[in-house]
Simulated assay, not measured.
Amino acid sequence: MANEVLSEIRRKISDEKYYPYWPQSIRYPFIFVFLCFVALSILALRALVRDGLHENHTVVISTVLILVAVAGGSAALWSAGFRYFGLSKRIAATRSTKYGSGVVIPANRAVDAMIALLVLVGVYGLTSAYLHYTSASMSLLPFGRDTSSGANYMAVLGSLACALAILFLAFRSNTDYRLYSDGMERNVRAGRLSVMKGRKSFIRWESIDLVLTQRSIGYSGVETRNNQMKITTTSDIIHSRMMKRESLTEITVQVSLLPVEPNALTSLIRYMKDHPEYRYMLGEPNARELLRPLPLRERFRRARQAKSSTGPGCRPTDQSERSTDV
């Protein structure tokens, strides 16, 4: 019975009324950029196979080019519109002693990945410099840097990378959102050196008055992909600890920083705001399925419809909606 109700809610949520707030269209220039990175990786791999066994500098250069091609190709494919292929495994069920069962949407791991990369670079640079200073080995130094000045350069690079990693680790901030049958909770944990300070904000579904979706546009007119959702309420938001410039009746959700398809999250919040009879489904074990995005082809189709309905060159950047019945 619960699965049937969940499927019915997903069908209603995916109605044209709720999609798309941020159209996900194909951007062909980035597809061309992706193909260029693919060609670069093929050339680098070919050079690595052909000369890598005989030339150490070829191994280093080819490996760096392959890593750059993989990172650049992934970013180009994302920018081209091929993203959110399914429901993230990081979105999971959670339970609160105060609000019961629900769904947690954690923040993405971009900062954690950057910290890990800086640590790897720092360890490599300091290790290679140490082995050179102790005359143990110079094999870890890059080609052209197997000298005393090269070791000094690697020591400085490693120290700088470790310092940046410590800085990011000391001042990192994590934000997750939890959806319960009673409302939505934002949990912020901000680091200040060795102290992690947390603050929670809770919004009841019945107090939500307005949900505004918007997309930031760069000065040159280029989309910066900073998708935001602003929620205003008719009553004060419950804050565990007020911060400066924090409103009692408005909260901003940085949707682009979450591992969830933006339209799916916004549609679910608006639907739960309008339909109290289905809020209990957020406490079901498979409630995370309510955040599963539409198939990629369907999202492209709706993006084309949204673009044609607004006319050539006109794309909506702001949408708002008050409580309505479906």
Rank of each mutant, 00 (worst) to 15 (best):
S88D: 14
G311C: 01
Q319Y: 10
S41A: 15
L126N: 07
L48F: 14
Q214P: 00
A165C: 05
A71T: 14
A80V: 06
F171C: 12
I166T: 01
R304I: 01
V49G: 13
W22K: 01
W78K: 11
M138S: 12
V260E: 08
S135G: 10
Y18L: 08
A71Q: 13
A161F: 02
V49I: 15
D112C: 06
V222S: 15
S96L: 09
L258F: 07
V195C: 11
S220L: 15
Q254N: 15
R27D: 07
P106F: 08
G102R: 00
A161R: 05
Y280E: 07
L167C: 07
V70S: 02
S309T: 06
G73V: 10
A151R: 04
I13W: 00
R245I: 05
A93H: 09
R270K: 15
S201T: 07
D51F: 15
A47L: 10
L248A: 10
H54I: 10
S96K: 05
D182A: 15
S256L: 13
K307Y: 05
S247T: 06
P316R: 06
I231S: 00
D15A: 12
V60D: 10
H132C: 05
N187V: 14
A287V: 06
L294V: 07
D325Y: 05
T134L: 04
H239A: 02
S207F: 04
G100R: 06
T232Q: 15
L40Q: 12
L210Q: 07
A170N: 12
L212E: 13
R204C: 08
N226T: 11
A69S: 15
I9N: 05
A80R: 03
M243K: 12
R145L: 15
V188L: 14
T147D: 14
S181R: 10
L141F: 07
E321Q: 10
V326F: 12
V38I: 15
T252N: 14
V111N: 11
L212V: 12
R90S: 09
G86N: 02
T94S: 14
L48R: 07
R279E: 06
T58E: 04
S256Q: 13
K244N: 11
R109Y: 11
F85M: 08
L290A: 03
N108K: 07
F82I: 09
T213Q: 04
V123R: 03
T234I: 08
V260P: 05
T266N: 02
L291E: 05
T310F: 08
R270E: 02
